[in-house]
């Protein structure tokens, strides 16, 4: 039901993101989705990769001197059409679940867009999506 996301802490300095993505690339890791949260002072780079490679990649990054945090997020598929996103957000709003952040996938999935969500209450969110028939990706689907 949930998928694992890797977050890396970085300084808000030119070249930091390049160095990180180059490091991942050199180690054969394919990014499926990425988002960068920035403040004037620091940044947090969050990304989704092949779920079988999470532990190895986290270790690799730590050995490379990065601060790494792994946590669970929800990944859903939504119709790629006007109001597609609003529909999902409305669903959450009615249940008083807030979105802490969201970003979407690189890959093209035809009629659907793929969204990664961190919610104020992950379990309640997952139950809601199940009830409403919103497709949630399993780790195996992201392999």
């Amino acid at each position: 039901m949930y998928i694992k996301q890797i977050s890396v802490f970085s300084q808000n300095i030119r070249g930091t993101l390049y160095t990180l993505t180059e490091f991942l690339g050199n180690n054969g890791i394919d990014l499926k989705a990425i988002s960068v949260a920035d403040t004037s002072n620091f940044g947090i780079v969050r990304f989704i990769i092949d779920q079988d490679k999470i532990d190895d990649t986290a270790k690799l990054l730590r050995d490379g001197g990065y601060s790494v945090h792994v946590n669970h997020v929800i990944c859903v598929s939504i119709p790629d059409k006007p109001s597609g996103l609003a529909q999902i957000l409305g669903m959450l709003e009615r249940e008083h679940i807030s979105v802490e952040y969201l970003y979407s996938f690189f890959r093209n999935t035809g009629d659907n867009a793929v969204l990664i969500l961190r919610l104020s209450d992950r379990e309640a969110g997952a139950k809601l999506f199940e009830k409403e028939g919103v497709h949630m990706f399993t780790p195996a689907e992201l392999a």
């Binding site: 996301q5 977050s7 802490f9 403040t39 620091f42 947090i44 945090h69 946590n71 802490e100």
Partner: peptide
């Protein structure tokens, strides 16, 4: 320096420390 075990995926946590 941030302690790795206290780093999380949200910005607000680090901002709060600051």
């Amino acid at each position: 320096e941030l302690k790795e075990e206290l780093f999380s995926d949200t910005v607000s946590h680090v901002e709060e420390l600051r």
